[in-house]
Nucleic acid binder design. Structure first.
Length: 283
DNA sequence: CTTTTTACCTGGCGGC
DNA sequence: TGCCGCCAGGTAAAAA
């Protein structure tokens, strides 16, 4: 489900409930999500103190006092519920166990962290904290969009001499970490680029412009997530999904919101995924 | 090597 | 109410 902004919002939501707290109990209700859990996961988590919560691309990493880090991915439908602890002004009682509550962590402060994932495209693993990005799931991921490594010269080099449509190139986690289907659509709308446009013949100025555009789109969504985080805490303590106003995503047949533009948003399918765009504004 | 397709899973929605 | 097909924000592995 979530792309970088949603994952960052989840990370921030977990921070007050988990950071500095000890995991007093870990209930692992099934042996796997997308892949098998690591051996003895519950035992390796129990008694560990959470030193820090980090994010790399769409992964959340909880560094533990044991020298290991818990890696979490929400897949398409993963959600995390916080209960039993004060969040802002609100205290959420522990909910009844629900279908697809796969892993439940109890923290020393009384907080309960429930990982729920209907489709089970999510993942959890334990790795040595010192391994860093050497973990197989992290090893081939490209630069963080807000990092120094993501810049004009890098992106130019990366897109040079390739026949891929720009939609696929930006969806590729090796190009830049954290973009998913929604935010790629939004970036291309802002850039005025048709999703099927080949990356090989993009003018240098367009490529250069993509760097700040990607950062803007993601930063605005994180900002929106921050405000909806407050709403969610008040609503039900659930993290992982927030409503956001999109300019093209999910708006097939609706009028384009660009001033003066009279076209309707279209949807095409590219390598099995929906792309939403304005045929007038995006070329 | 690059690019496209497939597969993994469940649930919600619209149409009939 | 039920059945059916379609759709879903990810990504690794297989195929082309």
């Amino acid at each position: 489900m979530p792309e970088l902004p949603e994952v960052e919002t989840v990370r921030r939501g977990l921070e007050p409930a988990m950071t500095g707290q000890t995991i007093t109990h870990a209930a692992v209700n099934r042996p796997d999500l997308r892949w098998p859990f690591p051996p003895r996961m519950a035992e390796r988590l129990t008694g560990a103190k959470v030193i820090a919560l980090r994010r790399r691309s769409k992964y959340i990493l909880a560094d533990l006092s044991t020298g290991e880090s818990l890696l979490m991915h929400l897949g398409m439908s993963g959600r995390i519920l916080i209960s039993g602890v004060l969040q802002g002004d609100f205290h959420h009682d522990h909910p009844a166990p629900a279908k697809h509550d796969h892993v439940v962590l109890t923290m020393g402060n009384g907080a309960r962290i429930t990982f729920n994932d209907a489709r089970r495209f999510g993942a959890m693993d334990l790795l040595d904290t010192g391994l860093g990005d050497a973990h197989p799931l992290l090893a081939s991921i490209g630069p963080e969009p807000f990092g120094n490594g993501f810049n004009e010269s890098y992106l130019t080099q990366r897109l040079k001499n390739r026949a891929t449509p720009i939609k696929s190139a930006l969806l590729d986690q090796q190009t830049v970490a954290g973009l998913g289907n929604i935010y790629v659509c939004e970036v291309l709308y802002r850039a005025g680029l048709h999703p099927a446009r080949k990356v090989g013949d993009l003018p240098a100025t367009i490529v250069a412009g993509l760097v700040p555009l990607i950062r803007d789109v993601l930063a605005e969504a994180i900002e929106a997530g921050g405000s909806s985080l407050r709403d969610y805490r008040q609503a039900d303590g659930e993290l992982g999904y927030f409503q956001h106003r999109f300019r093209v995503y999910g708006r097939e047949g609706e009028p384009c919101t660009t001033p003066e533009c009279t076209a309707d948003i279209q949807r095409i399918v590219q390598s099995g995924r929906s792309s939403f765009f304005c045929p007038q504004c995006q070329r």
